[in-house]
């Protein structure tokens, strides 16, 4: 049995190494495109995304408005481009913040000894047992609905996942002989942590972060959709879907355009993250 599995595994792993599957390439390309959009999007808008023109309301896609207009006559394409910044950068920021806090907590848990470790990690477990969306929603509403609250809420709901991953990796690294060598040389706990453990424990966190950006985009949009994130006039994909929802039968493009962008972002980051993960740990591809 084991022999069969191994012989099967070898060529698959090799192929992944030599040449990326087409799906992965498309995903990486899309991620680059979306990041470009997040940076340049607001500069590329053909119309002012906030210019209300009730005479032009609910127009179907045409030459004048490539993706049509919404209920207030605002250009959907312009709003989608302008919204890329808050939607994608918001998600990036949330994940980066969560990863940073998670790593910090993992460091404390790893250095702090068994007692600190137990307390911190059990706290993470409790937080992890609550659905992210519910928790983020609660925090965002408590802080007062805005894009900033949504980002903060996601950081609060998301850091324990990163703390777990980082701590697991640090646990392994801290027992490795090069860490012991540093201890024999007389390195302090902090030195061991910063120079040896930390730089060698972050691969998993990077991969996880990429993987989570997709999910973060979704939750971000979800928060805006239910009114706990970005507020109506601002161009943000989730908020746009919400404003368009009431016209769904007559003017589908208002919701569908930002909806597709959210889906695309979530998928592109998730597939890229997964691709990074399998390339980092070839065995994971088989499970």
């Amino acid at each position: 049995m084991t022999t069969v599995a191994t012989t099967h595994a070898v060529p698959r792993v090799r192929r992944t190494r030599r040449r990326l599957p087409w799906l992965d390439r498309i995903a990486y390309g899309t991620v680059v495109l979306l990041l470009g959009l997040a940076i340049l999007g607001p500069l590329l808008t053909p119309h002012d995304p906030y210019a209300v023109d009730l005479g032009q309301a609910l127009q179907a896609p045409s030459g004048g408005h490539l993706l049509g207009t919404d209920g207030l006559g605002r250009d959907v394409l312009s709003r989608a481009l302008a919204g890329a910044r808050s939607s994608i950068l918001g998600a990036l920021l949330a994940v980066a913040g969560a990863a940073a806090i998670g790593i910090l907590v993992a460091c404390v848990a790893t250095i702090g000894g068994r007692w600190v470790d137990d307390v911190v990690m059990r706290f993470c477990d409790i937080t992890l047992s609550l659905p992210v969306m519910v928790m983020a929603l609660g925090v965002a509403v408590a802080l007062g609905p805005s894009l900033r609250s949504a980002v903060i809420a996601m950081v609060v709901a998301w850091w324990p996942g990163f703390a777990r991953i980082a701590r697991a990796e640090m646990r392994t690294v801290i027992t490795s002989p090069y860490v012991e060598a540093a201890r024999v040389l007389g390195a302090s706990r902090w030195r061991v942590m910063l120079r040896h453990v930390l730089p060698n424990s972050l691969d998993g966190v990077y991969v996880q972060a990429t993987l989570e950006i997709g999910g973060a985009t979704l939750i971000m949009a979800g928060l805006s959709f239910v009114g706990a994130g970005a507020q109506p006039p601002s161009a943000e994909w989730g908020a746009m879907v919400e404003t368009g929802a009431r016209y769904l039968t007559s003017a589908w493009w208002i919701s569908v355009v930002p909806g597709l962008l959210i889906t695309l972002t979530a998928l592109a980051f998730a597939i890229s993250g997964d691709s990074l993960r399998t390339r980092n740990h070839p065995d994971a591809a088989l499970t």
Partner: peptide, 22 residues
């Protein structure tokens, strides 16, 4: 401190006793 300096160790496996990022 002087013990940490005066007593040094060589490990068994040189593949894992050197920090790969240094």
């Amino acid at each position: 401190r002087s013990f940490r300096r005066d007593v040094q160790m060589v490990f068994q496996d040189p593949y894992s006793s050197l920090n790969p990022r240094m």
